[in-house]
């Protein structure tokens, strides 16, 4: 019982991270019909920008960034999150403008290759010595290490404690707020309607007077901001910040993409659902079977879903026009 609850809580926190990243993949896919391979690198950038800002900011406030015990006031964390989101949003805009926009009419494979190129570029520029460097760093603590709730639940031979940390709650609530904002944007505003129209048919949308280029740019900015938030929250949870080209980031991005596919790519609500599904499979598999193969479960799930229901849980079938 205790183990079950603890695993469940971890899955909720991780799941909301996956969902945040998956949203970026799914929005871009919905509109431009290609996998933005560079999306996971925006997450990495969000994490590293947060790290760089924290290292610079904390000493200015008279705090030791390497002291894990004392945390700065909450607004510092919020400011760093916002700054990271803004910078990554800008970067997302620039990537779309210079790398993807010229290929709007090109075969999809070309765009995919370009996206891989952008991904490689971000990784390796990030690893340069005068950017972030090629060695892992430790993220300063921005949140006090408080346990909000300790529960004694039956488990194992007797009772075991289940701990709900502030970090997990912050991850979950920040993600939830961002997802609600997005939900409102996509389904309740004029801009969201325009996005959905472009995703339905770029050509028809532009005939209806929708500024397609602006909508696409906006989508990239939005997706990149969510990715940055995910990167920030990820290093809050796991303070060891790996170098930009580390394969752990690739796996994080891959899993988030899998979440988007499982939920039904192009579907905003599906991405959130997929994020949680993935996290549950991964966490429960890791706890109850073997943690060595946690990545394998996720991909096994992907293959099963693709074979059984290729359009994902919430996706609708598409037919190619002949």
């Amino acid at each position: 019982m205790a183990d079950l609850v603890q695993t469940l809580l971890t899955a909720l926190a991780i799941g909301s991270l996956y969902a945040l990243i998956a949203l970026g993949y799914t929005m871009v896919y919905g509109i431009l019909k290609f996998i933005n391979f560079a999306h996971s690198d925006i997450v990495v950038l969000g994490a590293w920008i947060s790290y760089a800002l924290a290292i610079k900011l904390l000493p200015m406030l008279g705090l030791n960034p390497h002291d894990a015990e004392t945390a700065p006031p909450l607004w510092v964390g919020a400011a760093i999150l916002l700054a990271a989101m803004l910078l990554c949003g800008l970067l997302g805009f620039a990537i779309e403008r210079f790398a993807y926009k010229p290929l709007r009419r090109a075969p999809r494979l070309n765009v995919l290759i370009t996206a891989i190129g952008v991904s490689l570029l971000l990784q390796n520029v990030g690893q340069l010595n005068y950017v972030f460097g090629a060695s892992p760093q430790k993220m300063p603590a921005l949140l006090p290490n408080i346990d909000l709730l300790r529960l004694s639940l039956p488990g194992g031979d007797g009772y075991r404690e289940v701990v709900i940390g502030l970090v997990d709650v912050m991850i979950f609530s920040t993600s939830a707020v961002l997802m609600l904002v997005l939900e409102y944007l996509v389904y309740r505003t004029k801009l969201g309607t325009a996005m959905r129209a472009v995703s339905f048919s770029t050509d028809n949308a532009s005939l209806m007077g929708i500024p397609v280029d602006r909508v696409v740019s906006f989508t990239f900015v939005l997706g990149s901001m969510l990715a940055a938030a995910a990167g920030f929250l990820y290093v809050m949870k796991y303070p060891g910040v790996n170098q930009p080209a580390h394969s752990i980031w690739v796996l994080l991005g891959l899993k988030a993409f899998v979440a988007a596919v499982i939920g039904g790519i192009g579907n905003v609500r599906g991405a959130v659902l997929g994020g949680f599904v993935i996290a549950f499979v991964e966490q429960f598999g890791a706890f109850y079977i073997s943690s060595n193969y946690r990545d394998v479960y996720v991909f096994a799930l992907l293959i099963i879903i693709l074979l059984v229901r290729p359009t994902g849980l919430l996706g609708s079938p598409v037919r190619e026009k002949v």
Binding site: P102, N110, V111, I113, T114, G117, N124
Partner: peptide, 17 residues
Amino acid sequence: EQYRLIMYALLLIIMML
């Protein structure tokens, strides 16, 4: 060495364009 992959990346993007 550290510029090799950057060159590859730029090569990919420029080739596609």
